[in-house]
Write a protein that binds this DNA or RNA. Structure first.
Lengths: 223, 223
DNA sequence: CCGCGAAGATTGCGGCAGCATTACGGGGGA
DNA sequence: TCCCCCGTAATGCTGCCGCAATCTTCGCGG
């Protein structure tokens, strides 16, 4: 997936680009509306992230311009001006969504998915993998009907993986599943959890394997 | 326009109904999920407003239920629980938007307009080619429902090809899908990725072939 | 039908980023 | 007070991926 980011704060833009790249999203970045317009002509983006306050004008004016060229690429407006009335304004000129700064990258991702019309992920009540049954709502795990109690964080990781068993779960999704955004994470804590979780699953004979996809994330499958 | 409002606070519900009626919107109101489900079967709504905390359960669980019946009516979640992570949760189970209480009716209106304006399924969320199913948003690939893990770059190439299956994808488009501006490329790295991807797809028996159109690009089709 | 050049295919190599594992210690709960 | 969770960081390793060399295929012109 490829995004166009129109944002004049270098620092934020860089951070965002880096964060998005972890989701496998390629980000083009520009600080000016004029350049942005040119870029949309040369490339086809899946979505556009648009700041309101830009060096060469109010970002919102970009949207009608874009629409007039027949492009219906979704636009998500990012801005510190997050008053209700301003949100109305943004949505009414044709933005698809409006996100106040500061925001979680994961919320951005979620809104991206929503905007791109991601179909609903069915949430099952109980998930069976290998010899293990997981109830992600109640956070309980049993192996062959004997309960397995895992530390909280490992449990969260496992639940997040189980919800999408046999499919990759992005690393950042796992981080979001385990940490809220006050708890910043500045080490390989997640890796450590994965490692310990693996060991515990092995000891319990759960019949599952946590598999890594380098640069993308992890996935849970039967072994 | 006709809405379904699922909300257990009588007072808020009444006030909202009155306010919406001024905009020419007809509102059906119920306080329980069970009734709501019945109502969606009997009527066709333009959108659904959904509270999270309801007498008979968490409102979010309603969304997968609804989607499973094949209904893609937009759902806007209304709730006091407006923490970022909770918003992610809401959007990820298939809500189209999320609105924290208290909110302005005008903002609700704007979001309604935005949600109703969205073109139906801009990007498919799952693409099936041959024996393979690709989820370009979550970057996961399965062959006959067994996961296939591909390196990141090969994954991006495949996703780009799959999005336009049976159609040629320009070489430059592929490069754009895999690399951003900073990552310059001065070799046949893309060719190498294609080659390795082909091998992996063959080994996995994916039932697809990556064809080359000399001087133009590549295309993915079933074999 | 043949030859030639350009584009593509394939493969080994090496650097290095990302991952796995583990030990350590602080901190909180029983 | 003891135990275990869990964040941190050091260490070693794996395999992705950019690169380039070499071989193959394609298409065109004569």
């Amino acid at each position: 997936m490829r995004l166009l980011l129109i944002e004049d704060e270098r620092e934020l833009a860089d951070a965002l680009s880096r964060a998005l790249s972890k989701h496998g999203i390629v980000t083009d970045h520009t600080t000016h509306l004029a350049d942005a317009f040119e870029l949309t002509r040369q490339n086809s983006y899946d979505a556009i992230l648009l700041d309101r306050r830009l060096p060469d004008g109010e970002g919102l004016t970009f949207i009608p311009m874009l629409r007039r060229t027949g492009t219906d690429t979704p636009v998500i407006v990012l801005t510190a001006r997050n008053e209700p009335l301003e949100r109305v304004e943004g949505l009414d000129v044709g933005a698809d969504d409006y996100l106040g700064k500061p925001f979680l990258v994961d919320e951005l991702m979620a809104r991206l998915r929503a905007v791109l019309r991601r179909p609903p992920s069915l949430t099952e009540l109980q998930i069976t993998v290998g010899r293990m049954v997981i109830d992600p709502l109640h956070l309980s795990v049993t192996v062959e009907s004997t309960p397995l109690d895992l530390p909280r964080r490992e449990l969260l990781v496992l639940a997040a993986l189980a919800k999408r068993k046999d499919k990759t779960v992005l690393r950042s999704t796992l981080e979001a599943a385990v940490y809220n955004y006050e708890e910043e994470i500045q080490s390989n804590a997640l890796d450590a959890h994965i490692s310990r979780l693996r060991k515990r699953l092995l000891d319990a004979g759960a019949g599952v394997a946590v598999h890594n996809i380098r640069g993308v994330g992890y996935l849970l499958k039967e072994e």
